[in-house]
């Protein structure tokens, strides 16, 4: 099939970007979206032009490196799917596709479609962990965890840190990312000792990084490739309020 691509081109963080139009033909429906971009990039290199830079790595939807806002939706039109797992059979011959980087103040553009998501790492650094050193824990079965809670914790832990939540949020808020980590640990007995400290520290860092506030659009949940539920945001709100009112 033939497609018209409008791809964001931006030389560096300081430059002003713009869309560049490219026609691609010979797109096979079995290609993944990124393979389609690979083919375009190869042909650009052959023409002596610079290919479009975009983040990607595992190409099986788990590393969270791939991004792209495709026709106005982060990770494109298919629900519960990362860009690398999106296949061209979801598009029709003759379609126009707009490809933009993830946009949020906390995700500055590095080049073309590549953005800096290190803000997420810094949020984890202030509390997204359980303070247990190597070789300190007790036997793994010493603390039973109800199956329901373990499953819920796993639902939250499924987050791949891709940043689509903040990219999709009209407020540029990353509540879903933060809530997923906070809730994972809040649901497990191992996470209890640092529960209050963690939620306060992570939320404060989130705001310091320039992410917006939640106004419950639920756009984050809609685009989340791992379908992390906004229920975790409510859990985090409750934890945060409780912690703010009662922390030492």
């Amino acid at each position: 099939m033939k497609l018209t691509l409008h791809i964001w081109r931006q030389k560096s963080a300081r430059d002003k970007g713009k869309f560049e139009e490219h026609l691609v033909d010979d797109v096979s429906p079995d290609m993944s979206f990124l393979e389609m971009l690979d083919v375009l990039n190869e042909s650009l290199i052959h023409q002596g032009k610079e290919p479009f830079a975009y983040d990607h790595d595992c190409r099986e939807g788990i590393c969270g490196a791939c991004s792209l806002t495709i026709n106005g939706t982060p990770h494109g039109p298919e629900a519960a799917t990362t860009t690398c797992q999106l296949h061209m059979r979801k598009f029709k011959n003759g379609d126009s596709i707009f490809i933009e980087p993830f946009r949020a103040r906390a995700f500055p553009i590095i080049k073309d479609l590549v953005v800096d998501r290190s803000a997420f790492d810094r949020i984890i650094q202030v509390g997204g962990f359980i303070s247990v050193g190597t070789n300190q824990p007790q036997d793994a079965n010493a603390l039973p965890v109800s199956k329901l809670k373990a499953e819920l914790a796993m639902d939250a832990a499924a987050c791949i840190g891709c940043g689509a939540c903040a990219a999709a949020c009209p407020n540029g808020a990353s509540m879903l990312f933060v809530a997923a980590k906070v809730s994972q640990f809040a649901l497990l007995p191992q996470g209890q000792p640092e529960r209050k400290k963690r939620v306060v520290a992570m939320v404060e860092q989130m705001e310091k990084e320039g992410f917006g506030g939640c106004t419950n659009f639920y756009e984050c949940e809609a685009v989340c490739p791992k379908q992390v539920s906004v229920r975790f945001i409510a859990m985090m709100n409750r934890d945060f309020l409780g912690a703010t009112l009662t922390k030492e």
Binding site: V132, Q136, P137
Partner: peptide, 12 residues
């Protein structure tokens, strides 16, 4: 033991 201590949600 280490991973469970870190909050890895293994199947139960």
């Amino acid at each position: 033991d280490q991973c469970v201590g870190q909050g890895v949600p293994f199947a139960r």
